[in-house]
Structure formats: structure tokens, C-alpha cells
């Protein structure tokens, strides 16, 4: 059975933003990261985004995404199977080799497919068309230079 991807309110589809950082964000405590503060985002009067994370300052750019991204949300149903996670993406090398075997089992495949009705579906929750990207090396913030000047 096909798994459907629905858009419930196309006219008022929300727009989410993407902030793209080089590499990974790491935190010292390492354990529970929920709700932790990451950093401040500023824009200068030219529209350039500035991100301050800890001791570091990053300068970025606002960019249109070359291809927009849809934010898909798997809707919660009894059936926990997600196509994208399981059967789907995993490439089965045998599937190309055993074509003859496949053909004889095709009927059972379809019978199975028809029986195991997936109740999974995806909702398009938002669209991203723009991102802030921070590609340059973070610069350190030095707090107390002015004293010696």
C-alpha cells in the first residue's frame, strides 16, 4: 500500500527556517541537552546574520535554498512502521539478482502488500525556502582587550 504524504492546509502552509552550521554543535555537559541555550542570533543593518555561541562569533549569509525542503511529520497511528526508516531506503542487493525468483513470488508479494495496510502517513508540516548559513570560521571573542589600550 502506498504511504501518503498529505498537505492539510496548503494555503496557510507554515514557513520554517534552516540554520546551517559547519560541523556539529557540541556541549560540555554532554548529557541532557533539552532546552539548553545555544546562542544569540543578530542581524546587522545590511541583513547579515551574526551568531554568537559561547566565546565565538560567526558571520553568515541569508540564502534562498536551491531546492526547497518540506518538513514531513509521520503521523502517529497504531502501526509503527515507517517506510523511510525500514523497508524503503535499504537497498536490497538481491532484488536485482533474483529477478526470476521475484517473478514467481510477485503474487505473494502483492497479496502481502494488500493485507498489511499501512496506517502510516506523513503530513507536510512546513516548507523551508530560505536558510542562514554560517560557513566562515568562528572568531573568538576577547573580552578584556580595552583595558590595556
Amino acid at each position: 500500500m502506498p504511504i501518503i504524504v498529505k498537505t492539510t492546509s496548503p494555503t496557510s502552509l507554515e514557513e520554517y527556517a534552516i540554520i546551517e552550521l559547519q560541523g556539529d554543535l557540541e556541549i560540555r555537559s554532554g548529557e541532557n541537552i533539552h532546552d539548553l541555550f545555544i546562542g544569540d542570533l543578530y542581524y546587522n543593518k545590511y541583513g547579515q546574520p551574526i551568531l554568537v555561541i559561547g566565546h565565538h562569533i560567526l558571520q553568515g549569509r541569508e540564502q534562498k535554498l536551491e531546492k526547497p525542503l518540506a518538513v514531513l511529520e509521520k503521523s502517529r497511528t497504531k502501526d509503527k512502521k515507517a517506510l523511510l526508516n525500514e523497508s524503503g531506503i535499504v537497498f536490497d542487493p538481491n532484488s536485482t539478482l533474483n529477478k526470476t525468483v521475484d517473478r514467481t513470488t510477485l503474487d505473494t508479494t502483492v497479496a502481502l502488500e494488500n493485507k498489511s495496510r499501512h496506517s502510516t502517513e506523513y503530513i507536510v508540516r512546513a516548507i523551508c525556502t530560505k536558510k542562514l548559513t554560517f560557513k566562515s570560521r568562528p572568531k573568538p571573542i576577547i573580552a578584556n582587550v580595552s583595558i590595556t589600550v
Binding site: P2, V5, S9, P68, A70, V71, L72, L84, G88, V110
Partner: peptide, 30 residues
């Protein structure tokens, strides 16, 4: 949550409220 990259046609379909479908059987790539 998953991010799905869209081409112009898919984007347009979503904006129009059209449904998309993932399809794939047991030994098929989705």
C-alpha cells in the same frame, strides 16, 4: 520529522494541496 528536498514540480503540487505517495513493495526500492 524528516526533511524532503523538493523540485519545482513537487513544490507546486504541495502548494496546491495535492497528495504525494511513497510506493514500494517488499523487494523494491521506494
Amino acid at each position: 520529522l524528516k526533511l524532503l528536498e523538493l523540485d519545482t514540480h513537487m513544490h507546486q503540487q504541495i502548494r496546491l494541496g495535492q497528495t504525494l505517495y511513497f510506493k514500494g513493495g517488499q523487494n523494491e526500492k521506494v
